[in-house]
Design a protein around this nucleic acid. Structure first.
Lengths: 98, 98
DNA sequence: TAAAGTAGTTTATATTATAAACCAAATTTA
DNA sequence: TAAATTTGGTTTATAATATAAACTACTTTA
């Protein structure tokens, strides 16, 4: 009846990160942090988890003397996101919603 | 940018319970348990949480000599569910999905 | 050169989810 | 009819998760 929801994606912050990266394709740490209102610590941990899951590619370099972490969604990440959305619809697409 | 997701509803099992009760309006413990594939213990805890949040009304009676727990969604629950779905859409309605 | 700021990471703690153990009553079986 | 099993749950212990606070390493500014 209800398909399981990917626990990696069923988390507010990680879902927001993925949502963002689906539309912009690439974003750096600070931009994601400000867009999601996350704390740096929380964001660091959640990016790591998405990376470990293979949903993100993370590149670290220096920009104007400061470290810069750039994230990009992988095709695996795009697929996972799409599957998650499809699964979610079983939960929220209640008959009779306009 | 991203609205907060009600943590009471942002849980697979609790969301499934609510989804079910939105469409059937009333269901007993066993039916919910089988529909969601939840263990009894987990279900018991999550129903209690939804009740504590005021999202469910829980009635306990006996049916054919056995205890029977019946759940019904409240109007507060319906509202919360609808708000949750609306908030979720910010996360999953990425431009260009058909 | 000391203080404050940038861009993060690590770790400790609080919260949450889940399963295992338990309970009381009813029923079946031996 | 006593013991074992089933029903319909609840309670509690543990594992997993999320989050904030503390920390690191370096840079800029005063």
């Amino acid at each position: 009846m209800f398909k399981d929801l990917d626990p990696i994606l069923h988390s507010q912050l990680r879902l927001a990160i993925m949502s963002l990266l689906i539309s912009v394709r690439e974003a750096d740490f600070i931009f994601i942090k400000e867009s999601t209102n996350a704390t740096a610590g929380n964001l660091s941990v959640q990016i790591q988890k998405l990376k470990d899951a293979g949903y993100l590619e993370v590149a670290k370099k220096f920009k104007d003397n400061y470290p810069q972490t750039t994230c990009k969604i992988t095709s695996k990440g795009v697929n996972a996101f799409e599957s998650y959305v499809k699964a979610l619809q079983q939960y929220v697409n209640v008959s009779g919603n306009k």
